[in-house]
């Protein structure tokens, strides 16, 4: 009996161990189910679970790993890992664009004038011409490199002068004195026709430095001059009627009386 009772005790123990093992495995299964439910709850908003319940359903080991993960600086959550991967991609993209920009500066840009002349100019000169730069920005790098950019309102002579101006301006801009001297020389070499055509081209291509320089030179020519001088100088036709002319000469006598001889020549 004693043996029987002993063996039965052992059997009972084994059974209880098995039961415990089963219970343990069922607990693990339950935990897995709970974890799945949690995952579902996170993904779909229909299933909800209170934080306390979720916390209770975790095993001790899970709780420990959770605590540890809080202290780990590496991306623990999926969102953080996504963010990290995005920033890495962006960094690589930036690096790629930096290299392409470097290549762009080395490359040349083709410009085709209205009279069919094609110019190959350095990228920095093209940048000075904001209209051209806008065209380059709007088209892909391959396209803008492959084709000559059409300049519908600019003749070859004007573009050649503009390119020359950009290059000389860059050299002269080392000192303010040199720059002023260069701008004066550049303007002095142009007659009124050429200046007019060049300022129209500079305006169309939005080459700010040249536009400002030419404007200053033209303004200088009409500073402290009489109305008649300005008309003569630019060959502008007076389109005021005789009555209008008489009226404004009366109301603006200050502009016509005591005119110095110098200002009329």
């Amino acid at each position: 009996m004693a043996k029987e009772s002993g063996s039965s005790k052992i059997e009972m123990l084994e059974i209880s161990n098995e039961a415990m093992a089963e219970a343990q495995s069922s607990k693990i299964e339950m935990l897995e189910i709970n974890n799945e439910a949690m995952a579902e709850a996170q993904s779909s908003k229909t299933v909800t679970m209170k934080p306390a319940e979720a916390e209770e359903s975790k095993t001790e080991t899970q709780k420990i790993t959770d605590e540890e993960s809080k202290n780990v600086p590496i991306a623990a959550t999926e969102e953080e890992s996504k963010k990290l991967s995005i920033t890495k991609v962006e960094e690589s993209k930036n690096a790629a664009t930096a290299t392409t920009e470097g290549e762009k500066e080395e490359a040349k840009v083709s410009l085709k004038t209205l009279d069919g002349v094609t110019f190959e100019v350095e990228a920095w000169i093209a940048k000075e011409m904001e209209t051209v730069q806008a065209y380059i920005d709007d088209t892909s790098a391959d396209t803008s490199a492959a084709i000559a950019i059409p300049l519908h309102n600019v003749a070859g002579r004007e573009l050649a002068r503009m390119v020359e101006y950009c290059k000389e301006h860059r050299r002269a801009s080392v000192s303010a004195g040199n720059l002023k001297e260069f701008e004066e020389r550049f303007a002095a070499a142009l007659n009124l026709y050429e200046m007019k055509d060049l300022i129209i081209a500079a305006n169309y291509l939005n080459t700010k430095k040249l536009l400002e320089s030419l404007s200053r030179c033209i303004a200088k020519a009409i500073k402290n001059k009489s109305v008649e001088f300005v008309r003569d100088y630019f060959g502008v036709t007076n389109d005021y009627t005789t009555e209008e002319e008489a009226q404004y000469r009366e109301t603006n006598a200050w502009a016509f009386r005591n005119v110095d001889e110098d200002s009329r020549n």
Binding site: L192, I200, S215, I222, Y233, G235, N265
Partner: peptide, 27 residues
Amino acid sequence: NSNSAATTGVWNDFRSIDIIITILMSL
């Protein structure tokens, strides 16, 4: 002043008011 365009009317067809304004900025 030898550049004077008195007989030519060189600026008469000058229709861009923006350019004239840019010139006038310096006056």
